[in-house]
Design a protein around this nucleic acid. Structure first.
Length: 285
DNA sequence: CATTGTCCCTGGAAGC
DNA sequence: TGCTTCCAGGGACAAT
């Protein structure tokens, strides 16, 4: 599932391959991903445009195009952007042919992904919150946000309008690394817990970017390779396995309709007072 | 406004 | 073996 580290990896991989190229062909195998406008207009506004730049905001990918246009892509659950895939892709939905004859193929088993065209990308990504890897994501900013919320802290971390890019897996990993139970009310976190969570969020995301994302399900890099970040997950998608710190069996609960993995020993349950910081091995580098 | 719940979608796993 | 049922979950949207 592409979250911030996966999208960052995709953008970094694609950038040198597509920036400066011109779109000379489009194959629409499925119209569902195309939002707000018809297929015809979508193609007309993309054909002959050159790709000037590629960037990420939250979990969105932004292709900056000539003629002041932006193609804003969200991969949702199972979307992938593949560059010159070796064979036919069974779930190919859109294909873009570039002027060097290279092909950018959008595949998506479950068809949740979206493609939007906008003169102003802010119209789509403008509501997103702070980028957790940017300087503006400070400990006081996190404290100010969490301090006023009663929702479970995990739910708060998933709110894209406040912090952009954290998804289900990395919320679990960050909370484990900080020793915080996902069901703790946001406003109940103590200053030292907020400090630990702030460090953990950055450390977990940075480490995952370095490992080129996590291939839990369908995620692939544009060259078709899997990521390695999931190999180092402590709890995410590891129900039934042993906690790397205390060997307690990792459990799965549901928080805000999302599957949630945690160590019941290391992550103090709501209402309990013991604080166990688990930031070891995550230097935040 | 904050918060909760429903829906979208389909392959793969689990159950019978 | 083959059929049916359930599950995964980001974000839009509706309801409270």
């Amino acid at each position: 599932m592409p979250e911030l580290p996966e999208v960052e990896t995709i953008v970094n991989s694609l950038r040198p391959r597509v920036v400066g190229k011109t779109i000379i062909g489009i194959v629409v195998r499925d119209t569902r991903p195309i939002q707000q406008i018809g297929v015809e207009e979508f193609c007309r506004r993309l054909m002959g445009r050159s790709i000037r730049g590629l960037s990420r905001r939250g979990k969105y990918i932004i292709f900056s195009l000539s003629h002041k246009n932006n193609l804003v892509v969200h991969l949702r659950m199972t979307g992938a952007l593949l560059w010159n895939p070796a064979g036919p892709e069974p779930f190919s939905r859109l294909e873009f042919v570039l002027d060097d004859r290279s092909k950018l193929v959008y595949t998506d088993v479950r068809r949740f992904g979206t493609f939007c065209l906008a003169r102003d990308a802010g119209k789509i990504v403008g509501k997103l919150g702070i980028e957790p890897l940017n300087k503006e994501f400070t400990r006081p900013a996190l404290a100010a946000y969490l301090g006023t919320r009663s929702t479970p802290v995990k739910t708060a971390l998933l709110n894209q309008e406040r912090i952009a890019g954290i998804g289900n897996m990395y919320a679990d990993e960050a909370l484990f690394a900080a020793g915080i139970h996902p069901l703790r009310p946001s406003s109940s976190l103590k200053p030292q817990e907020i400090a630990a969570l702030h460090r953990s969020i950055r450390a977990v995301l940075k480490k995952a970017v370095k490992n080129q994302g996590a291939s839990i399900r369908n995620y692939r890099q544009p060259d078709g390779e899997a990521g390695r970040a999931h190999e180092e997950f402590a709890v995410a998608h590891r129900g039934g396995q042993a906690c790397p710190h205390c060997s307690t069996t990792i459990t799965r609960i549901v928080v805000g309709q999302r599957g949630t993995y945690l160590c019941p020993h290391c992550q103090t349950a709501p209402g309990m007072t013991t604080l166990k910081s688990r930031t070891k091995g995550l230097t935040g580098q």
